[in-house]
Design a protein around this nucleic acid. Structure first.
Lengths: 206, 206
DNA sequence: ATTAATTACAACTACTTAGTTGGAAACTGG
DNA sequence: CCAGTTTCCAACTAAGTAGTTGTAATTAAT
């Protein structure tokens, strides 16, 4: 059996994803990642460089995977609401992506890694949004996507907020999901309507 | 001059707020907090106990201050949209509260400190929301508030998202603000309308 | 003043951390 | 089988880390 370096890299990346997801960049421990992967930690430095570069690799891999796993499908405001619902469900099942996204935002600020690939991913989502809502501007499509991401990704990262606001009743996750879907539908429908009749500009900004 | 222990505590809390805000719980350094406050670090252990307890004190102080600084005023969906706009502006000027909120969510999970006080604060906001939108249920009011917090607090914590989606054009912060305000208005108006005519239930959850 | 408590602080401890190194083991082509 | 390269790993290093302690200064009550 030849040295299966790809497998080792994969094990390391998987363990690192789990560790960074739960503890963040500052809280993650290289030794723990190596131990969980069953690999000597020196491999991390050979394959990825250092802790920061490993974090970068985890971020790029996880967020790019997510983009493929939850596509925008169909047409009209319903399609965007449906997308939001599926994104919400996905994050409810596995909070890796939203947690990594917020870790990155908090610990890295505006410094983004893997820019070209991620910009391409975002542009692709913007294009899908425009396809779903013909006539909507790129700016409005981007804003709608940010709204969707904010609503779907904040929920699993702020698990206590639900309980603080609504008490401990069961089924509040489902109600939260419904609220997100409805809000996104309303926002998308407003953009679509505005795109149809752009002449009577509503004073929405006031 | 007597021992001004309150001043010392205040200096420590201020320095700790800044340190935890930028670096989080795992990334913060006790030595750095003491140095920035111009106080010996042993004082931290006398006054607050340990690093975690200091973090707790910072969280409770910062979030409770915020609740008072940005009140819900007026009636109708416009009032909720206005509240969202002021919250957005507040966080744009000073991202301390949203950053601490997300640090807490990521590093602490569901374990919330200062529960009674914070539940009271949330209940107060829920009551204000119900006052602004008569007939709305506590659950829907809480959901609307979570929507507002998600939209307003995610923006300063994910500063890169804007650029990734919409490019680097200036004024995108203002457009984002307008989008948040409009979205909140639509969500609040829908809840208000539903409260007026509760008999024909729209299939919003489907 | 004297005493007893509190507040301040520098030095210290025990431990953990990211990152390195030197050499052994496993694979490759000849 | 052999030389050269790559992969592996245990032990090591140098620099922090949270938290403690012994002691001196400050205060207020006697």
């Amino acid at each position: 059996m030849a040295w299966d370096t790809e497998r080792t890299k994969g094990l390391l990346l998987e363990a690192a994803t789990s560790e960074f997801c739960t503890r963040g960049l500052a809280g993650a421990r290289i030794d723990r990642i190596a131990a969980e992967a069953g690999v000597n930690k020196e491999r991390i430095y050979q394959y990825f460089g250092n802790k920061n570069a490993l974090f970068d690799a985890v971020i790029v891999a996880a967020l790019s995977t997510l983009m493929d796993e939850v596509p925008i499908e169909g047409r009209g405001p319903e399609a965007m609401a449906d997308y939001a619902g599926r994104l919400f469900d996905h994050h409810q099942k596995d909070a890796t992506a939203p947690r990594l996204l917020f870790w990155e935002g908090l610990e890295r600020g505006t410094e983004v890694v893997g820019l070209p690939k991620r910009m391409a991913n975002c542009a692709s989502k913007v294009n899908s949004t425009i396809a779903a809502l013909p006539g909507v501007s790129r700016e409005d499509a981007g804003d709608l996507l940010i709204t969707i991401v904010s609503l779907c990704d904040a929920a699993p990262v702020l698990p206590a907020l639900d309980g603080l606001m609504a008490g401990n009743d069961p089924g509040r996750a489902q109600r939260r999901r419904a609220a997100v879907v409805r809000t996104v539908y309303l926002a998308a429908a407003a953009l679509a309507a505005e795109a149809q009749e752009p002449l009577n500009a509503p004073a929405a900004t006031a």
